[in-house]
Design a binder for these strands. Sequence first.
DNA 1: GCCCAATTTGCAACCCGGTTGCATAATCGC
DNA 2: GCGATTATGCAACCGGGTTGCAAATTGGGC
Lengths: 142, 142
Amino acid sequence: MAAGLQSRAQALIRNTQAHLTQPRVRVLALLLGARRELSHDEIMALLPLEAPVDRVTVYRVLDWLAAQGLARRSVGRDRVFRYGAAQAGEARAPRAEFKCNQCGITRRVRASAAKARLPRGYTPQYVETLIVGTCSDCAGAH
Amino acid sequence: MAAGLQSRAQALIRNTQAHLTQPRVRVLALLLGARRELSHDEIMALLPLEAPVDRVTVYRVLDWLAAQGLARRSVGRDRVFRYGAAQAGEARAPRAEFKCNQCGITRRVRASAAKARLPRGYTPQYVETLIVGTCSDCAGAH
DNA sequence: GCCCAATTTGCAACCCGGTTGCATAATCGC
DNA sequence: GCGATTATGCAACCGGGTTGCAAATTGGGC
């Protein structure tokens, strides 16, 4: 499983024409395997299991992944960046996200698309739904 | 006009039972008069016109206003807090917006809210729907 | 395989929005 | 006015993120 993520990450990075490096592969593999967005801090905590990567390098890798469209970046209430692997074809598929208004974490959820009454001449292409509320972690920790 | 804001601010602050102070009145009056959210920095730049207020005090006033429900706080992409005066009975009505991906204008439209299947422990509070497409103006002027 | 230019990494120092500790000053019930 | 309570100002601090630059890695040519 981890090996699969590793090679998926390698393939995605090779597509960008840029250098294939260990920090990039390891960080992207981490994002691909995560089921929620990760902060720089969390990534640092997860990485040393294999080998140390400088914190500045991780910042730069994350910036780079976002610039390549391989990761998306969001800002939580705590003013901390969090990153998730961008799904292929992400922009066009109908999507719904849940955003916790306490910790600011965003994750994708299943939802039916809203039906809209658009004025004459308006053509919809895709719909994004954002559900704001409290996630289970924050609900638990009062 | 500015005097009106000043007295509105005073009334709102008196309602909280806390001390009525110059920093609180001036900051809240500023928020009431602003037509968009203001950052701490912008508020500092606006204040000295009358008299200087310490930056830490402004931070604390803003925190306090938010805690009292007199202001709402949001975090932008730049990780900076911005504050706006909270409208009385600020409605969290289900809302939907249409955004044209050609001209970029956004307008509100009527739409039914999406129904989501949330994971256990997740509590929704409100739903925002964004419909991306082409508006009538841009459709006509291909 | 080996070399070399271009790209990345690691380190140290820095930036800046926001927070904390504490002594001084303003507020308001009496 | 008087005094306990609450808020302000100042200085130092915190932490996530960024920058400058030398050393190391990558990968195309040979």
